[in-house]
Amino acid sequence: MAQRDTNGVNYNIARDPTLVKNRIFLGNLPACTREELESICHPYGKVLGSLVQKNFGFVQFESEEVANKCAAALNRSSFKSNCLTVRNASLKPKLPNTAAKKNLPQSPLTLQGVMPGAATAAAAPINDCEIIVVNRDNTKYAEIVEDNLRQVGMRVDVLFPNEDVMLGQVLSNISARGCLYAVLISPQHEALQSITVNILYGVPAEHRNMPLNDALTLITTDFRLKKQRDEVGPAQRRHPDAMQQLIEMLSDNRPLTALQYECIIKYLEEQRDEQRKLELGDASVIAKLKAPDPEIELQKKILTIINNPPVTAIQSELMYPTFEEAKADKRLMELLQDGRVMNALKTIYSSDLVQTVSQHIIE
């Protein structure tokens, strides 16, 4: 926001050294315009001015409190695929050596003194939940929600976005910095004693106008379960690294080769068998599950003998032109003398046909 002073000289408020505490510094900035930079800061307070350089920039706010809150929110967030480094502009970064300092752009407006309050805000951990309040008249209702969530150990903050900022942009900014949940509160919500819950991690989900108690139960239960999953963590992941990579590629719908599919299938079959052993606890049961059904196999043998060549092929030469030749086939006779075979034949052909075969061949 460039202005002219009484002497007619261009004046940018983002360069004023007397207002440095109300300003944030953004490092690792991608190529962007001042308008784009300001757009990610609007949800946290009124932007008075900005300055964009090659790979860093500054944004000016009305107060130090707003600047610190924005710095804490945007630090380590993603902007155009770049991970931002954000702090109060009055703070000097802690660098391990002099060489590192040469590679970091420095603001000529940076003060030497470090303010403990601002430093604490800039280093604040990522909140688990942000409560978005559309109207400040609903602040007390928002604080009730905040207190309930804090009681279960969640890091919560109340956010009052500017009216001209779209809700989708606010949610996008909150999600980009790693926040798990966003709660929306409007006058209508307070009137109905409800809230809207947005789950931001994993597969995003929105639960609109939930009754307050139900919504609080949803958030706290989901948060507890997520903590339990995180405590298990990758250290106890049971898939080998190479197989885990293939499974993740499959999950992400990335192209796989036929050999890679075969590796996954074989691995999953082995895991299935191991799981069966754990669940059933008896190797003999596993063997039975793998073994083919004897009745089905018997029927297959019968059909192979009888239908080769197919009996429906009138022009084909018969396997047994006469009953005498059929009787000479010992393998066939052994099968037909088995009671199970005859029962199987009855399920395939009519009883009259089976009876005729019995009379002419077996007797």
Results as ranks from 00 to 15, higher is better:
Leu345Lys: 03
Leu216Gln: 01
Ala118Pro: 00
Leu335Thr: 02
Lys266Trp: 07
Leu29Thr: 09
Leu180Met: 07
Pro321Asp: 04
Pro161Cys: 13
Glu35Leu: 15
Arg331Trp: 05
Glu62Pro: 04
Lys346Asn: 10
Thr304Glu: 09
Ser172Glu: 10
Asp293Pro: 01
Leu298Gln: 00
Val183His: 00
Ser77Gly: 11
Gln260Tyr: 07
Leu84Glu: 02
Asn308Gly: 06
Gly202Tyr: 03
Ile296Gln: 00
Ala123Trp: 04
Arg276Ile: 15
Met154Asp: 00
Gln188His: 08
Arg177Glu: 08
Leu149Thr: 01
Glu163Ala: 14
Leu332Phe: 05
Thr322Leu: 07
Val145Phe: 02
Arg224Ser: 14
Leu336Ala: 03
Arg224His: 14
Pro204Arg: 06
Val134Phe: 08
Asn343Thr: 04
Leu91Cys: 09
Ala123Thr: 09
Asp16Gln: 11
Asn135Tyr: 11
Gln359Glu: 13
Arg276Asn: 09
Ala119Cys: 08
Lys290Val: 14
Val86Gln: 00
Asp5Ala: 07
Cys83Leu: 11
Cys70Val: 09
Gln193Pro: 00
Asp222Cys: 13
Pro108Arg: 03
Leu216Phe: 04
Glu36Asp: 12
Lys80Val: 06
Val145Ser: 03
Thr139Arg: 02
Arg177Thr: 10
Leu246Cys: 06
Gln271Thr: 09
Ala123Tyr: 07
Asp293Phe: 01
Ile199Leu: 05
Gly168Ser: 12
Gln337Ala: 09
Leu167Ala: 09
Asn253Val: 07
Val156Trp: 02
Arg87Val: 08
Met166Lys: 14
Ala283Ile: 12
Ala72Gly: 08
Asn135Gln: 12
Ala118Asp: 06
Asn75Phe: 03
Lys226Leu: 13
Lys277Thr: 06
Pro187Glu: 01
Thr217Trp: 11
Glu325Gly: 04
Arg254Gln: 15
Arg23Val: 13
Tyr181Phe: 14
Tyr44Ser: 10
Tyr11Asn: 09
Lys92Asp: 09
Arg331Ser: 05
Tyr44Cys: 12
Met166Arg: 13
Ala31Leu: 13
